[in-house]
Design a protein around this nucleic acid. Structure first.
Lengths: 231, 231
DNA sequence: TAAAACATACTACCGGGTATGATGTTTCGG
DNA sequence: CCGAAACATCATACCCGGTAGTATGTTTTA
């Protein structure tokens, strides 16, 4: 039987779990179901990263789990739903890493630096997720047949906008407290995000990669965009 | 009849036309054929941008030309071949705009600034091409069944590497002449390219958009990455 | 007039989605 | 405490729409 009232977390917006505020451990049962879904999501992220959104088939995802399509379709209505779940998870990772840093009692320039560092780390640490969502967004929006899909996508895109707005906020604060010299806040934000998101394109995970390398990348990248290249 | 010895420019690597050094106007015949192909390539770029690589069907491309699949398949062996052509064209645009600027007799920092500006302009002016190729690259490489396809893709990727190397060259020169302060040249190059390529993600073409807006974007973006955000 | 440049009609196949069955696992009345 | 219904979780088998590619016919051009 199709699990109709399966945890609808990733199918529709649930107000009480915005950005991972999830109250876990209430019961053992839903937690396990959550884990099963999460496992699928992770497999999907890997497949999306390797083969792209369309080339990655549902069977691929299932194979990656040592399972069949039946399992995936039991937890997700459609392939789009799976992608949406990956997308939301990627954004949750970003928010959890960056948003707390905004409250620090520092000059805006220093806060921005730490936020940039954190964002870079998230890009590298959750690479499969971030690569997946970078591909098709408004593309998917055009392709989405059902209105429900488009609604979910709009919500996700708005989530992304909220996230990028965090950086613009700090940029504006830096303009105010004088620690930053920004003429065009939106454009500066685009430049910052662009330089960091570029990681998703060129960064490659190697098994023997020490943590220090990622630290160096995050630090150098953030320093470059903050201090510039000119001497 | 299938045009077997159709201008194989976009099917296989031809040594004599590296980076748009094409000697045009030799005969009238190939020039016209070239134009026909170019028209298809442009239509494909538009469709790839709108619907994504896979969702864009060959019929879509043909429809965009007011033609049918027959025309496309007469000039290109496969859908992959069309994508490869779009890819190469995109890179040619980049080379033509940026490479000449390297010879200018200026401090490296200033040359880099102009190169960045030029690159930004290319991103905006040839948006459909640039968006198309940003999607599937090594993704396509994995998906490519035939060895011939993979060979072409490797060549294209190497073309891209050569292009990005231009910026690293200037960065190294700036390190030498003291106009730039760069500790990690490759990383600095990634940051620069990333910030500029981000354009492809967020820039939207509007019909009433004055040229001055693109100029402002290119200038501000380049200035931001060169001079940094900190005051 | 022959070849190039298309259009038309058709096939083969892949992949998303579904219907159904098999196997645990929880729940609950007695 | 027990046994069966209800349910959750997956596997299997199948359908079917869409699309890349082909084979062939038709028109245009040099």
């Amino acid at each position: 039987m199709r699990c109709e009232n399966c945890n609808p977390v990733f199918d529709e917006k649930t107000k009480d779990q915005q950005r991972g505020q999830m109250v876990l451990g209430e019961i053992a049962q839903p937690a396990k179901k959550q884990d099963n879904q999460q496992e699928i999501i992770e497999a999907a992220a890997h497949c999306f990263m390797r083969h792209g959104l369309e080339k990655a088939t549902m069977t691929d995802i299932a194979d990656h789990l040592g399972a069949t399509k039946g399992r995936v379709y039991h937890h997700f209505r459609s392939k789009n739903a799976v992608f949406f779940a990956v997308y939301r998870q990627a954004m949750v990772f970003c928010f959890e890493a960056v948003e707390p840093l905004m409250a620090q009692d520092l000059p805006a320039a220093d806060r921005l630096f730490r936020m940039a560092e954190a964002h870079a780390h998230v890009m590298m640490d959750t690479l499969p997720y971030q690569r997946s969502i970078r591909i098709g967004v408004e593309i998917y929006l055009r392709g989405s047949t059902t209105e429900a899909d488009r609604t979910v996508l709009r919500e996700l895109i708005e989530m992304r906008n909220r996230y990028e707005h965090l950086f613009r906020e700090v940029l504006a604060e830096g303009q105010a407290d004088g620690s930053l010299s920004v003429t065009d806040v939106p454009l500066a934000g685009r430049a910052l995000i662009g330089a960091l998101n570029g990681l998703v394109d060129w960064f490659r995970i190697r098994p023997d990669q020490p943590q220090s390398e990622r630290d160096h990348i995050a630090r150098t990248l953030s320093a470059t965009i903050l201090d510039g290249l000119r001497s």
